[in-house]
Simulated assay, not measured.
Amino acid sequence: MQLPQIRLQSTFAKIAIHTTPPVQEIKQPPAELEITQPPAQLTMETTPSKLTIDQTKAWEDMDLKHIFRRIEEFAQKGYEDWLEGIARVSRQGDELMRIEDGGQPLVEQAKENSDKPMYEFNIGWIPSLFSVKTNFEPAKVHIDVKVHKPMVQAKANKPIIHYTPGKVNVDLAQRNSLKIDFVNIGNQVEISV
């Protein structure tokens, strides 16, 4: 026996989605920068060092004197000897003036005037200690620096932005459907759907 059947055949709807992704471009131009640095001004003043060595005393100690020094010493020595001679002659004249006081002034004066003086002798070519005098003045340096500040000029550039928005297209790729079939119904059944 064949039973009546209802056959249903359905298809679902299909949606087609097409997307175009967004595009964003960002370009950042570098900043325009100008830096000017004037050079520093440097001024230096130097006073040179000075070394003074005076060995006059050492040469004099070795009896190697300058002619002007010798003339000066001889003049001083002659003047002193002259004064001593005047004093001696004056003293001897006073002694002779008082000859009546006794004594033997003539004999003593003859002996005094005839005796040669005793001279001292010493090693003459070794200078005395610290006879060479030195004086040192160190150098002086004066440095003057004038610094100039840098001049900076900066111009910032804005970023360049290009944006293309994305797109979404939604379409119906397949419509839904329902197909109904009746099998083994015959003529007796009224069909209405």
Rank of each mutant, 00 (worst) to 15 (best):
N184Y: 08
L51M: 07
N135W: 10
I26Y: 06
M1Q: 12
E60G: 14
E95C: 07
N157E: 11
G124T: 15
Q92C: 02
V193C: 05
G124Y: 09
N122P: 02
D144V: 01
Q9L: 06
N187R: 08
S49P: 04
M44Y: 00
L129G: 02
T164S: 07
N157Y: 09
F130D: 00
Y163P: 03
K158V: 06
L178M: 13
D63A: 09
E84F: 11
Q188W: 03
L3E: 12
S114M: 15
K50P: 01
I15F: 08
G103P: 00
N187D: 08
G93P: 07
Q92T: 06
A154W: 06
M1C: 07
I71W: 03
T20S: 15
V141L: 06
V145N: 05
P150M: 02
R69W: 14
I143G: 02
V89K: 02
D61S: 13
N122T: 03
K149Y: 03
V193P: 00
G102V: 03
V107A: 15
M97K: 10
V168W: 09
M151Y: 02
N157H: 03
L42T: 00
R98W: 04
I99T: 06
I185A: 04
T43Q: 11
E95F: 10
R70P: 00
P29K: 00
Q28G: 01
V170A: 14
T46D: 06
P138Q: 05
N135E: 10
L8S: 01
A110R: 04
Q41M: 14
V168S: 05
E100M: 15
H18I: 15
G103E: 09
S10R: 10
K167R: 08
G124V: 07
H18P: 13
A16L: 13
G102H: 11
W125Q: 15
P150L: 09
Q41N: 15
I26Q: 09
N157S: 11
M62T: 09
D171S: 15
Q188T: 14
V132C: 11
D144Y: 00
Q104I: 04
E25V: 14
H162P: 00
N176V: 07
K146G: 01
D61Y: 13
F136H: 06
E112V: 03
S131L: 05
E95S: 08
D181W: 09
Q76G: 14
I99K: 09
E45M: 12
A13E: 12
E34P: 00
S90D: 02
H142I: 12
A87V: 05
S10H: 06
P38K: 10
V89M: 08
A75H: 10
P127F: 01
N184E: 10
A75Q: 07
F12P: 01
T46W: 13
D101A: 15
I99E: 13
L33I: 13
Q92I: 04
P30R: 05
L172H: 02
H148A: 01
P22M: 10
L172W: 01
H66C: 14
N122R: 12
D101K: 04
P117N: 05
A87M: 12
K179F: 08
E120F: 08
V189G: 07
Q28C: 03
